[in-house]
Simulated assay, not measured.
Amino acid sequence: MTETPAPKSTTGRFFEDFELEQRINHASPRTITEGDVALYHALTGNRFTLQTSNQFARHVGYHAAPVDDLFVFNAVFGLSVADVSINAVANLGYAGCDFLAQLYVGETIRARSTVMGLRETSDGENGIVYVRTEGLDHRDVPVLRFVRWVLVPKRDPKSGKSKPATVPDLPDAVRPITVPRHRLNRDWDDASAGSPHRWDDYALGEKIDHIDGVTIEEADHMTATRLFRNAARVHFDAHAMKKTPFGRRLVYGGHVIATARALSFNGLANACIVSAINGGRHTAPVFGGDTIFAWSEVIEKIALEKRDDIGALRLRTRATKNHPCHDHPAEGPEVVLDLDYTVILPRR
């Protein structure tokens, strides 16, 4: 009797397949190309001059424009999806995201993750998986690390088997702050950067409406998700999504974050570097055709030791759908993103 060969393809991990302290080396390292960067800028509308102009970057001490920090975050996130969240119901949140180094076109990144926590939901249908993911460069030096937690369905909810609940302690903020080695006030040109406002000009508690809105077309978010190599089925499989309460594909949350960051240029144009994502939540789904707006609040001003050329702002940015932010909405069904992050600006 001929044995049936084992299947070559895989359906991905379900909640039962994760174990505490499990280590996963993710496949398909990627080399960042000029095309990747150009497409990212086109899809998000990113205008932060340090990342868009080689000439500007060289004037402030870099050898070339670094790759946008949120492209790196999304690229590392995307490398982890096939092993962590390809079957996910939802990506729930982020913490402790530390941007350890800046990357440049031509460099190669890979990713690895460790399972930090597991908790079944009360209905027994799903479980929450907590992972710490690291992005590493071609020298195997970590350039980014973050924690995320994701809602993953069970393969067999009726089995009766359960796992002990373990929820990790998560940091409130990333400390110490990772800062660039370059002195950013060397030949910093406010006119080219797009704003006269530097670190000294922002006040604790200040609220900034970024004013502009951008409609996320189906083609935009599908292309962006492919750019980030995020293979989660909730973003791609329209047939399967018809059977869910959403009824349609979801816009990848990382694309919403990148869009909100790009919108923040209007009011924070000199906030050229993202140093950390302290915490973040996707508070409501976004679909193709929704228009995204954003506003930010300065929740901490941080003077950096031994650096008089730069300072850090801890911001809380809320993104909304189909709701302009002149009234600074902090909660409600229109709020789709609540992001706590730290940026670096030049000082006077």
Score class of each variant (00 low, 15 high):
residue 61 G to S: 13
residue 287 F to W: 00
residue 326 H to Y: 04
residue 83 D to T: 06
residue 16 E to H: 02
residue 198 R to S: 06
residue 45 G to A: 05
residue 208 I to M: 13
residue 28 S to F: 03
residue 339 L to P: 12
residue 227 L to D: 05
residue 80 S to A: 15
residue 308 D to E: 13
residue 122 S to W: 01
residue 122 S to R: 07
residue 334 E to G: 00
residue 249 R to Q: 10
residue 258 A to R: 02
residue 71 F to Y: 15
residue 126 N to F: 02
residue 31 T to G: 07
residue 263 L to E: 05
residue 61 G to W: 11
residue 91 N to C: 02
residue 305 E to W: 00
residue 39 L to N: 06
residue 10 T to N: 04
residue 154 K to L: 13
residue 303 A to P: 09
residue 18 F to Y: 15
residue 60 V to D: 08
residue 88 A to T: 12
residue 219 A to S: 13
residue 340 D to L: 08
residue 13 R to S: 11
residue 90 A to D: 11
residue 17 D to Q: 14
residue 79 L to I: 10
residue 268 L to Y: 00
residue 244 T to Q: 02
residue 26 H to M: 12
residue 235 H to L: 12
residue 13 R to L: 11
residue 275 S to V: 02
residue 27 A to L: 15
residue 195 S to F: 12
residue 167 V to P: 08
residue 156 D to T: 12
residue 344 I to S: 01
residue 152 V to C: 09
residue 343 V to G: 04
residue 278 N to V: 04
residue 296 S to E: 09
residue 253 G to W: 02
residue 322 N to A: 03
residue 179 V to R: 04
residue 110 R to D: 11
residue 347 R to E: 13
residue 92 L to C: 15
residue 106 G to T: 08
residue 74 N to S: 14
residue 222 M to G: 00
residue 13 R to N: 15
residue 228 F to Q: 07
residue 125 E to L: 14
residue 343 V to R: 03
residue 241 M to S: 03
residue 320 T to Q: 01
residue 312 A to H: 00
residue 130 Y to D: 15
residue 85 S to F: 12
residue 138 H to E: 15
residue 211 I to P: 00
residue 159 S to C: 08
residue 317 T to D: 02
residue 246 F to Y: 12
residue 118 L to D: 12
residue 175 R to I: 11
residue 244 T to L: 03
residue 348 R to Q: 10
residue 95 A to M: 03
residue 241 M to Y: 00
residue 145 R to D: 13
residue 98 D to Q: 11
residue 332 G to I: 12
residue 54 N to D: 15
residue 52 T to C: 15
residue 127 G to N: 15
residue 226 R to Y: 08
residue 297 E to I: 07
residue 199 W to V: 02
residue 195 S to Q: 01
residue 30 R to W: 03
residue 126 N to Y: 01
residue 38 A to G: 12
residue 123 D to Q: 07
residue 230 N to I: 08
residue 47 R to T: 13
residue 309 D to E: 14
residue 317 T to V: 07
residue 204 L to H: 07
residue 271 A to N: 05
residue 348 R to Y: 09
residue 31 T to M: 02
residue 305 E to M: 04
residue 247 G to D: 07
residue 306 K to S: 15
residue 4 T to S: 06
residue 24 I to N: 01
residue 331 E to I: 09
residue 343 V to K: 01
residue 186 R to N: 13
residue 295 W to F: 11
residue 299 I to Q: 00
residue 267 G to Q: 10
residue 309 D to A: 06
residue 251 V to G: 02
residue 226 R to I: 09
residue 98 D to H: 12
residue 5 P to K: 04
residue 298 V to P: 06
residue 280 G to P: 10
residue 279 G to K: 04
residue 37 V to F: 07
residue 292 I to L: 15
residue 38 A to W: 11
residue 329 P to N: 10
residue 146 F to T: 09
residue 227 L to M: 08
residue 162 S to H: 12
residue 48 F to I: 13
residue 221 H to C: 09
residue 85 S to D: 13
residue 322 N to Q: 05
residue 250 L to V: 08
residue 42 A to T: 14
residue 222 M to A: 04
